[in-house]
Design a protein around this nucleic acid. Structure first.
Lengths: 196, 196
DNA sequence: CTATTAATTAACCACCGGTCAATAAGGAGG
DNA sequence: CCTCCTTATTGACCGGTGGTTAATTAATAG
């Protein structure tokens, strides 16, 4: 029933994902090719197709870990001992820091609209947004408009998509991140004064 | 000195740009290939390289028109008869409408970080931002923080990069655009209450 | 008519994602 | 030991991409 156990582990899914992940940190999606992965792994690129049905499947496996990381970061900020306002700031800063520290990944998670990878990450992105929206509302003193929370998220997303052109990681944009986060908190705080 | 005048106009820069532009409206940068342009033009793809040194040069020629259009839209909104607040709203809405109505182009102008096209559009993007920032300041009742204007621009940019996944043009996101614009105006208006 | 020059072609390069028949390798059962 | 069967792997192949360039065509100026 089971001839040839995978004891020798010639080539495993894990190895492929690890190599793809390694390259994905410094290169973007299109720059990491099946051939470059195979070359580094010392196998033919055809072999990879035995373990994964296509390139998108490899990258989605990687992305799901990053979605988890993003969600975990949010949870950690929420479970901290700080007061609500500080937490809110941390949530905003945390989101932008994540995007700037994992630029290639963020691109695939939220920016790229390649029909290949899409649909897969679409759902995960929605889940992450829902967590974000709930967190923001629970940290706010007053009842917020859903649209204001949404606008805030969009503003954070905009920061990441903009600054990725100019900085390599969060550290390099630290001050700007802080300023943007405080701008958004200010906007949300004065949100109550909206009509109807 | 000038044998073979381009009287017969076998293949002109204009024809190439027009065809590339035509395809660029419905397809994105990577989907429009030198071969697809040549095919539609009835020539070999090599012929195009006589008129343009590479693909990026063609697309930059197209993009510069769109940068002009974006700048003109801003000017028109500024020169209108409305009051300052309405103008400010129009500037915000105008920016988002431009991005949503020219998604392929906006992607190349502000989102993509392909080393090919970049650098070229970088400068034009900066110029457009400067115009935007000055417009916003001049329409504001009070002295705004540069950082607040920047945050506002980033939030507009975020809106476009987000909604392009869900919507084909401005019309389909009209309400959301309006809501986002008003959120940002509210944020800017209450800006004065910031410390230091 | 010839020299010059603009324009074009088509073959080439090095990549890409993806497919697939052939093959190697390792037990399981006789 | 030697089949048989399954898994895993190879490498050639397909059609596609952007880009380059030697050779060629065609038109015009002298």
């Amino acid at each position: 029933m089971s001839p040839r156990k995978p004891s020798t582990k010639d080539l495993t899914k894990e190895m492929i994902i690890n190599e793809a992940h390694k390259q994905f940190i410094t290169k973007d999606f299109h720059q990491v090719s099946m051939r470059s992965i195979a070359k580094e792994l010392g196998c033919s690129h055809g072999a990879i197709y035995y373990h994964f049905k296509n390139k998108a499947e490899i990258f989605y496996a990687i992305l799901s870990d990053y979605f988890s990381e993003l969600n975990n970061t949010l949870d950690e900020n929420m479970n901290g001992p700080e007061d609500h306002n500080t937490k809110l700031l941390n949530v905003f800063v945390g989101y932008m820091a994540f995007g700037l520290n994992h630029q290639s990944q963020y691109e695939l998670m939220f920016i790229m609209r390649d029909r290949e990878i899409d649909g897969l990450s679409q759902e995960a992105a929605n889940v992450s947004y829902e967590k974000f929206a709930q967190a923001v509302q629970s940290l706010s003193m007053t009842e917020l408009l859903i649209s204001d929370i949404h606008s805030t998220f969009i503003a954070l997303h905009g920061f990441v998509t903009h600054y990725r052109h100019y900085v390599k990681n969060y550290e390099e944009a630290k001050e700007a991140v802080d300023i943007h986060a405080k701008f958004l908190i200010k906007a949300l705080t004065h949100s109550e004064s909206s009509s109807s």
